[in-house]
Amino acid sequence: MKSFDALTTSDIAERAGFSRASMYFYFSSKQEALVALFARTVEALREKSRAAADDPAAPRDAIATAVARTRDRWREHGLIMRVALDQSSNIPEIGTLWTETAEIFIDAITAILVRAGVASHDGPDGARALAHAVCWMIERTFYRASAISPEALDQAAETCRVVWSRVAGIEA
């Protein structure tokens, strides 16, 4: 797994679609470039999460779609996401971006759980509390699997789909 220190400006520039020289025209540091690239990456996750919350499909299908879309983002941007998450305590802008993105995903998970019949109350077995647990389980599972291989990521996505479905009371 590549760390922030091992991540080069060329790595960031390549993923952002810039030449290395152009990157320094727009950004004064590797941290600043990482924040901008991560912001662009999580915006796609936010859009997909909002779509999941509004998905009129049956909960089983909405869960499958949301997990597949999230897997696809991790497949495409796993390196940047892992490095950014590792730096989230050192770079407050990244921590804020990720927390805000997670809240949108938690809202989507909550909406799907409620549609599946999970009670919407404030207790530990309420839809929102369960959505928090599912969201962070997906994040950690995809984080780890995306560092291993595309096949590991596919398997992780299927496991997350099964867990989320079971939390929703849907036979997986």
Rank of each mutant, 00 (worst) to 15 (best):
T8V: 01
T9I: 14
S10E: 13
I12L: 15
I12S: 05
I12P: 00
R15K: 14
G17T: 06
S19K: 13
Y24Q: 13
Y24G: 12
F25A: 08
Y26H: 15
Y26V: 08
F27C: 05
S29N: 11
E32D: 14
E32W: 02
E32R: 14
R40C: 00
T41R: 07
V42A: 06
R46K: 15
K48N: 13
A51L: 11
A51T: 03
D54Y: 07
D55Q: 10
A64E: 07
T70C: 05
R71M: 12
R73M: 10
R75A: 15
E76V: 01
V83Q: 03
D86E: 15
S89Q: 14
I91A: 06
P92C: 11
E100Q: 15
A102R: 10
F105Q: 13
A108I: 00
I109F: 05
I109W: 02
I112Q: 05
A116P: 03
A116Y: 13
G117E: 09
P124L: 05
P124D: 07
G126A: 03
L130Q: 11
L130S: 02
L130C: 01
A133S: 13
V134W: 02
I138R: 06
E139A: 12
Y143L: 15
R144K: 13
S146Q: 06
A152K: 07
L153S: 02
L153P: 00
Q155R: 14
E158N: 08
S165D: 01
R166V: 08
V167W: 09
V167I: 15
A168Y: 15
I170T: 03
E171K: 10
E171P: 00
